[in-house]
């Protein structure tokens, strides 16, 4: 099956590479003793040294432990060079603990957002995802790296969300601390699977900066949407022009009370553009639903209002490949 062949090939290819590198490394290790004739030849291996702990750990054990498994921890040394790279020169602090280093991430007197970010960018500026940091809204709005990336761990505010089968942290809880309207929108009945942790904000947006408005990762709204919704790329024989121009003409991507993330209830959404004789221009009110206003079964039910309304017939709303009038009027 197609999913097995591609994905399995990918997985086994990587596993093979890992095995090959392992094999290569192991072979090098077997060859190594010949180059170190002075090394003990006893069958029992010499005890290996523990990971290096910086001198800072003597007082700041929690903070030091919190980065042990990270790249910051891996690159640290006994002098705490990595600690000082972010928190400032601590040579005087080591002599006199009351003399604090010039720490831009101090909770008491924090440095400006730009200053804090510049510390991180000293090392990370070359990362490809930070290429457009200066052009992005977060840099402009004085959001620093430390506002989102917490190096030493912290207790987070308890999230407010329905149960989901995902137990890992949800990125939207972080973004939603500032972007409250978006946080509310993703909780609406019609939504992308963000609260279910199947999608995250950074699937569409690059929080580290982008040239596209609202920091979309792709070059336009439609390119962003069709990167997942490839069936909407078309081109269709009979397109629906607002679809090609901007998906947001009809949809709101974060959440809606209307189905399929539409901005407005159908048929009104359609009638805001389409007005003609007969049914496009007719009003469909409470007397056209399944029940009369008195609650009795309605013999005058209108198929243009009930169920999916206009889409009952004009289902090919994103474009059609059907011939003739079936395609032109998006009914097939």
């Amino acid at each position: 099956m197609r999913s097995n062949s591609f994905a399995s090939a990918l997985a086994y290819a990587v596993a093979f590479c890992a095995w090959a590198m392992c094999h290569s490394a192991a072979a090098q290790q077997q060859a190594a003793p010949a180059a170190t004739e002075a090394a003990p030849k006893s069958a029992e291996a010499a005890p290996k040294p523990a990971p290096t702990m910086p001198v800072c750990a003597a007082c700041h054990e929690r903070q030091t432990q919190s980065i042990v498994f990270t790249a910051h921890g891996a690159m640290n040394d006994a002098q705490g060079s990595m600690c000082q790279a972010c928190h400032g020169d601590a040579s005087e602090h080591l002599k006199d603990p009351s003399k604090k280093p010039e720490n831009p991430f101090s909770k008491i007197v924090p440095a400006t957002a730009a200053k804090q970010s510049s510390v991180c960018l000293t090392c990370h500026v070359g990362n490809r995802h930070l290429a457009f940091w200066e052009s992005g809204m977060h840099a402009k709005q004085d959001v620093s790296c430390a506002n989102c990336h917490v190096m030493h761990g912290t207790e987070h505010n308890p999230p407010i969300a329905p149960f989901t089968t995902s137990f890992r942290p949800n990125e939207a809880d972080l973004c939603g601390t500032c972007h409250q309207p978006i946080r509310a929108a993703i909780m609406k009945p019609s939504h992308h699977p963000i609260i279910e942790n199947k999608m995250k904000c950074s699937d569409c947006h690059n929080p580290h900066g982008a040239l596209t408005p609202v920091m979309l990762k792709q070059e336009s709204v439609n390119a962003q949407c069709t990167s997942c919704h490839a069936d909407k790329r078309g081109p269709f024989v009979f397109p629906h022009p607002p679809v090609d121009e901007n998906c947001l003409s009809c949809h709101t991507p974060h959440g809606s009370v209307h189905y399929k993330l539409t901005n407005e209830h159908v048929p009104n959404l359609c009638q805001d553009c389409h007005d003609w004789s007969k049914h496009p221009g007719s009003f469909y009110g409470a007397d056209k639903g399944w029940l009369t206003p008195q609650g009795a079964p309605n013999s005058s039910v209108s198929t243009r209002l009930i169920a999916r309304s206009c889409l009952n017939c004009h289902n090919a709303i994103h474009g059609s490949n059907a011939p003739g009038a079936r395609g032109k009027f998006l009914t097939r």
Partner: peptide
Amino acid sequence: MNRATPPILFIGLVAAAPAFAQSTP
């Protein structure tokens, strides 16, 4: 991808990882 593939992959990579170890555990 069948359901056995990811665990195989993970086990393979984790098993291979110690071979990369040099001086620290």
